[in-house]
Design a protein around this nucleic acid. Sequence first.
DNA 1: CCAACATAGGCAAACGTTTGCCTATTCCTG
DNA 2: CAGGAATAGGCAAACGTTTGCCTATGTTGG
Lengths: 339, 339
Amino acid sequence: MSRFVTLKDVAEKAGTTVGTVSYVLNDKKGRYISDELRRRVLDAASELNYIKCNGASSLKGMNRKLIGILIPQFENQFFTRICLAAEEVFVKHGYDLIICDTFDDPERENAIIRRLISQRVDGIIITPTAKGAENTQLIRDVGMNMVVVDRPLEGLEAYHWVTTDNYGCGYEGGAYLRECGHRKIVYIGWKSGIADLDSRETGLRNASAPDAEIYSYYADFSPEAGFDITDKAIEEHPDATAVFFGFNIQAKGGVNVFRKRGLRIGEDISVILIGSPEWAYTGNNDFAHLDMEELDLGRKAARLLLDLIMNGSAEPNRVIQDCVLIEGSSVRKIKKEER
Amino acid sequence: MSRFVTLKDVAEKAGTTVGTVSYVLNDKKGRYISDELRRRVLDAASELNYIKCNGASSLKGMNRKLIGILIPQFENQFFTRICLAAEEVFVKHGYDLIICDTFDDPERENAIIRRLISQRVDGIIITPTAKGAENTQLIRDVGMNMVVVDRPLEGLEAYHWVTTDNYGCGYEGGAYLRECGHRKIVYIGWKSGIADLDSRETGLRNASAPDAEIYSYYADFSPEAGFDITDKAIEEHPDATAVFFGFNIQAKGGVNVFRKRGLRIGEDISVILIGSPEWAYTGNNDFAHLDMEELDLGRKAARLLLDLIMNGSAEPNRVIQDCVLIEGSSVRKIKKEER
DNA sequence: CCAACATAGGCAAACGTTTGCCTATTCCTG
DNA sequence: CAGGAATAGGCAAACGTTTGCCTATGTTGG
């Protein structure tokens, strides 16, 4: 890697000193520079294609213009959408984004956090793993700005958090199924170890009719696990009229069970899920689902972090966003007389 | 942001000097350090939670341990999968990834490249926009390592490129449709201004029967444009038996046209697409498609870049990967007597 | 007993910026 | 015309690392 053009190179070419070049290029006011010299410097810089070394400026206490973001799954559109929205906001303010996938592995999360601090990022957005409270201790220790998105830091109180109403997701979905007359429901979920996520199931149960039966099954956070557990659930409860997927990643595998078993979705079996993966409403698919508006989540988190960076710290902030029920033909309305 | 712990802090606590601490922490050989002092330094470092400042080391010519990757669409799983695979490889070697979305906008691409150089990343992976050859000039000027993935740098010869056989994708798909007896085919494409991408259509045409008719339509690179153009194409060619989508992003919108028009996919109309978005094979969907194995693409690009970084430059390398036809019920086999 | 080597670690010069502190003109204004 | 303000720009000290160059003790073989 040849060698980068430095302030010194520019200064030499323009016949002045590095200090002056720095003043010119940063367009600092409170410093008198003749138009002529300014021109010479600017010309030299653009002729040499000078690009400042952000690492060196950050040594002097300037912002790195770098943000780190940790998500637990890159293959999950829910999270890539958060990143997408966040990136748009950050780029507009001249910040770059280091996007890291923790694969929901606490150890990996810890390592990534160390590396990001090592990069001296200006702030971190994180969807923590189950060990997030512990792992983010380091971030708080060094006083780095942080915004938590989606999942909480269990056991902690004072931090900035942008999230969806998980209980509400479960409740809204449950109420919809109830309205449509379903009272034998399979719930497919993930034992995340994160109470807030578990409240999706609670919401469903609280919204259901008193005489309804909810058959809960739990599996790993993957499409494959989703497929297997759904297959098992359907096998054991052929009488269930609906399946409620608490997590779109499991649903992605789970919904393929029905095709395999020759069950027509929306007729033989009703299906609803939390989240808005694109497969849910593309082609032949028209799944009822609970939209968490993750683009908004990402935007809000990014704006909050920028605010922290620019205005110093603020009161710990909690933003909870409502979800939106999107109806779909995957849920059958059971007629009164059938019940 | 309080103040980070520096080598100096560690040195003071351990009762030695920064130089020595640096030697200990980097575990340099060729330097004699007593076990006792080593322990003191290590203890001090871990007690103070010392994390090295990568920016400062990079000033001294060390690697930043930072890679930049530019993709044109974050919402396109084809690209996020490339990132996912690349990240796995890089992280294993201690590198962080700055992922940037150009939104297929050449100006944005240019700005991002400047910012990445400003961050002094150790290398860049890029899927260029139509103006990529121009915009990457800067990268080549400063001698930064670069691997191009998917699309080429039009007009340039000597660069490292990992890609799919685009012509082959078109050809394989066309041959499949021909086998199944289709000879009136709508092609939905994107006038990218990139010859290599346009060769998808050429492949389709070359694979089709001599008496086949291909009705080509072009639109912007978005689901919405895909929907509109597909609607128009079907309107104008109700006799077509199959639709070939050259780009999954357009297909995502386009496939919704059939539902709207009451056409049963795989019966009234056959559909095939290039790419493997998850919606294509989830739930009720079972679309024939051409898998470009983007995970492999990402892995190969990452490994090539790492190689360049570690072993200095190499001969410009070109890796072209075959695509794989995945059959699906979305394509009807037209019986002999119907033809 | 002394040269030669091994062991142990301090010192300071970079790396590329930013910025406070100077100095030296020129220009008013009373 | 003296002196303060405005204009213009050089100089050098940081920022946190890395590393080459020293010095100062042992330790050993001849």
